[in-house]
Write a protein that binds this DNA or RNA. Sequence first.
DNA 1: GCGGTCTCTGGGAGCGCTCCCAGATGCGGT
DNA 2: ACCGCATCTGGGAGCGCTCCCAGAGACCGC
Lengths: 339, 339
Amino acid sequence: MTEGRSRRPGPRIEEVARVAGVSKSTVSRVINGEKYVSERSRQAVHRAIALLGYSPNHAARTLAGSKANAIALVVSEQGSRVLTDPFFAGVLRGVHAELAGRHVQLLLMMNQPSDGAGQVAYLTGGHVDGALVVSLHGEDPLPRTLHETGLPIVVGGRPLAGGSFPFVDSDNFNGALEAVRHLISLGREKIATIAGPADMAVGMDRLSGWRCGLAEHGLAVKLVVHSDFTPEAGALAMERLLHIAPDLDAVFVAADIMALGAMMVLQARGYQIPDDVAVVGFDDSVVAATAVPPLTTVRQDVEQFGRTMTWRLLAELAGEEKLPLSILLPTSLVRRASA
Amino acid sequence: MTEGRSRRPGPRIEEVARVAGVSKSTVSRVINGEKYVSERSRQAVHRAIALLGYSPNHAARTLAGSKANAIALVVSEQGSRVLTDPFFAGVLRGVHAELAGRHVQLLLMMNQPSDGAGQVAYLTGGHVDGALVVSLHGEDPLPRTLHETGLPIVVGGRPLAGGSFPFVDSDNFNGALEAVRHLISLGREKIATIAGPADMAVGMDRLSGWRCGLAEHGLAVKLVVHSDFTPEAGALAMERLLHIAPDLDAVFVAADIMALGAMMVLQARGYQIPDDVAVVGFDDSVVAATAVPPLTTVRQDVEQFGRTMTWRLLAELAGEEKLPLSILLPTSLVRRASA
DNA sequence: GCGGTCTCTGGGAGCGCTCCCAGATGCGGT
DNA sequence: ACCGCATCTGGGAGCGCTCCCAGAGACCGC
């Protein structure tokens, strides 16, 4: 006697119910963390689940229920750049960690060149309950579009374009402020900055921090060069700064990876780091510790970043009230040899 | 009159059937590309689908059918290390690209410290049709365990532990061989290597390539130091090499990231690169081009790596026969300033 | 003629859950 | 005593599909 259909292996909810001595309704309630379940039942169900190695069928839950039990992580940028970024990797790790234990699937989506509308259709088509959007450029319309359709989202990084959707960001302003205060405490007075792109909040916030730090002590806030987050652009920016002010004694660079390029130029021009010019970076990425000299930088906890985004989204999906619209995560100065 | 339950939007298969003037069985057959459907019916169904903007419900298909319409990408290692690895990021991109357009979902799984058995249970529990396993350490039992349960898998990187499951790997041996031949063509004769861990195939294969390259020209194959894939370990390894052989004139380093550390040490000791010591890395990761001096390295196409793994798995799931058990992807030398 | 095989079709059971409903119990206030 | 109201429980319909089955034709060879 063979089974007609090839059934999926593993126990069903019905069997858990039998073992626990309750109905499948009660098992379902326990799985979904609903109230109105006695402590006795709850524990019996947990024991039965552990005993049988039960794991609920995602498809069945989704089909029967009114939610998809999945969230999307949308990387809103040419994947090539983002994915090789340690920032993204850390965020992904955090998201995954926060999802552990909950029965929520993570769907990864990246902007295919051809996508666009298809992506929005998929996201709003009921396949996911919410989305985490890592949107690197300020002008990206995706967060707004998704938010307008009513899909719960959390954006990673403060959105420049206004709009009032929830976001999580590192405290870029205070990180930069702390960096500048540190440079000032070192006795530096001619402190330049290599800022990030003006169309990204992360760039603008770090620049604001630098400005405030200088203003606090009545120092000049003129030595600014914008750049993008590559070593080459950082090198170019440093050259322009040295051209304007050959006698600067410190640089706050808005990203470690740019700082690398800047340090190359400084050393090539014969400046000693940190004796002639102190350098502070931002991110505390892997390259900071292995730079020559090791880079003093502002640390942001990217894994916490991912965890927090996920927590915020799940809380909203769970119907929690009075959630903060935005969350800023602390940054901290990591002192190494360069400043 | 409000709807009792909040239904998902969009038409069902039943409605498509009505519009096309056939039964839902026939619509199902068309969707799944089965034979035994008349051309007339097929076209009518296609027209109805287009007219209604119908898109089949993933959960329902999975629940009713015998397949999950999803595959897992299992990262079998402490996520912390792996995820910040550009290698992983590239693979992920490739997997995603290959999946585009097919109705297959990608599930990301990482080894939580607590997991283990739970992970296996989930994977073999019918939630996925197959798994991509990026297994970095040779002794990892996961691929074998999964394979024994009958779950189709493709392993990324040659498994050390034997076992006959499909895998995809870069041609590490020939990449290393080419690197050494290049060094020899430069007139170098005392060529050391900083090898990867001995428990990883990627480490062993690159080491073998180095050995063969030297043996071809009757050069000594003594200068080996094992290390792991971090800059710090690379630096330490370089120090040990210099201690053994201060007069070496070239190093083949089994990973760019280790080469970074090695180059720091060489420069600190006053060696000129490449004049005194030529350095060749492996991977052609982002850091290679921005190193000082820019690093000559062996390029592997990590995105292609991911694509190939995915292609192989989907082909097997589609029931294709005579698929190659293992696939080696070509590597190529990228010449920059360091050698 | 008659059986066999291949092609095409519709009906309907059932995949494993969630969620509605109805009922049972306990506790407080009137 | 009565009615609420909150807490806990089980039964069962049904989510939208796939896949089995049965059956209707069409065509073949004997």
